[in-house]
Design a protein around this nucleic acid. Sequence first.
DNA 1: GCCGAACGGTGATCGCGTTCACCGCGATCG
DNA 2: CGATCGCGGTGAACGCGATCACCGTTCGGC
Lengths: 259, 259
Amino acid sequence: MTDDKEGVVDLGRLRRSCSGCSLRSLCLPAGISGDDLERLDAVVRTRLPLDSGDGLFRAGDEFGNLFVVRAGCIRTTHPSSDGDEQVIGFHLPGELLGLDAISEGRHHCDAVALERTSVCAVPFDQLEEVASHVPGLQHQVLRIISRELVQEHQHLVALGRRTARERLALFLHSLSERLRAGGYSGEDFRLPMSRDDIASYLGLALETVSRLLGRLSDEGVIAVERRRVRVLDAAVLAAIAGEPGAESPDSRGSDRQVR
Amino acid sequence: MTDDKEGVVDLGRLRRSCSGCSLRSLCLPAGISGDDLERLDAVVRTRLPLDSGDGLFRAGDEFGNLFVVRAGCIRTTHPSSDGDEQVIGFHLPGELLGLDAISEGRHHCDAVALERTSVCAVPFDQLEEVASHVPGLQHQVLRIISRELVQEHQHLVALGRRTARERLALFLHSLSERLRAGGYSGEDFRLPMSRDDIASYLGLALETVSRLLGRLSDEGVIAVERRRVRVLDAAVLAAIAGEPGAESPDSRGSDRQVR
DNA sequence: GCCGAACGGTGATCGCGTTCACCGCGATCG
DNA sequence: CGATCGCGGTGAACGCGATCACCGTTCGGC
């Protein structure tokens, strides 16, 4: 199937493949190499381009593909019976979406691009087929979906126990970390989403988000200019967010032993 | 490995095995049968008994096993840096827990039994090994973890957008449905958790939970007597919870096509 | 250029749910 | 048996964040 001439690397094909992707270590191929990576590569459709506002899928749609964000940002929202909808997540480069559709074979969210965005589509049935021959890939899929679960737990704690100010600080902190992980600056970035989106995601009114951004700016923790954000004091931001600073991992043992 | 005499069923062993378990269709073995089910059976350790208050694992513990509740109830809580912790979930018969530990090989939650509880322990490395030979099992694991994700999304929407009254109705409605799925009555049951636990789970103060339970009781929607709850008007309860009554599935197509 | 919509900022007011306080009940234990 | 503790119920007051109202700015369209 490879039509590359011997010894000549096809740069175009490489750039479009997992092996040449800068997000490789974050994404499905993490820990996969050689023939196995080529098998995965054969399944992934790269470079699906989306304009700002374009939809990727809607709640109720039949589930066919998982998607990985290469560049840009995808917002997922959960529709409510009474009309209003809540923002569930923002997906940045290197992050998967569509995992919640595996359960019933239908998407439960609407997914929309917030800016010019490029995604890879991964046909799920083919991914499962490849994974059944590549144990490392099967494990990686489980790890990614489990990580998603952990993030949701943190989001739950934020919505359940944190003040508006703490939620916003946590949001900015998390965004900063994730952008850094994707290869972008974590200190100076542009928010892909509106104040309204942030408010919905954090379970707040948009006025509250607006005011608190202003307050954090007054305090010198961040600088905000419309959608541009600079983190001036990451330590204080993390402290407000309630992030454990230099806490020891503190392993306490292992789970219940079974005889 | 089977030491049963020909034609004679070992009832003790059967009752302890997946094939003889009444929760089979909810649990990992759903859709698995024959030799494959036997292979799964060989991995699962059944009947780990817990008393009320016993811990199953704690945040930071090394991850070894997934657990399935056979009877009783397990509460998982997410510890916070500043001391107070939030209840993340209640796990009823037929439900898995520990899935969030796959990502980093460490548990992120504390898990405690709220009453006399029996669980099955599933060593995760062995489960993965079996799953790599049994495609149906691999798919089932993904389906279960994905379903978990969907439930968390609904919980997020509840915490982000719903009033205290709606959250409580949703909680009772969901509890009722899940108990029914596990083979218990959904109309008349005993709450395994305290008001405090419910409040933490719903992001409310316990006083609010107490008052709203009283109000729902006054209105004749439910009857509450300490921890015993009877659902008197399931339709009204579902309506308050914002559950779609007789809404059509309304399939709108399939996700973005990829050329 | 003009127009209009989308977005963002800010003040004034309100109300839901929290907070604080104290109540009674039932179980456990010396 | 009275003492203690955990659990659950309830009243009163407060305050955080929602709601309502209106502002200016930016941007894309013709």
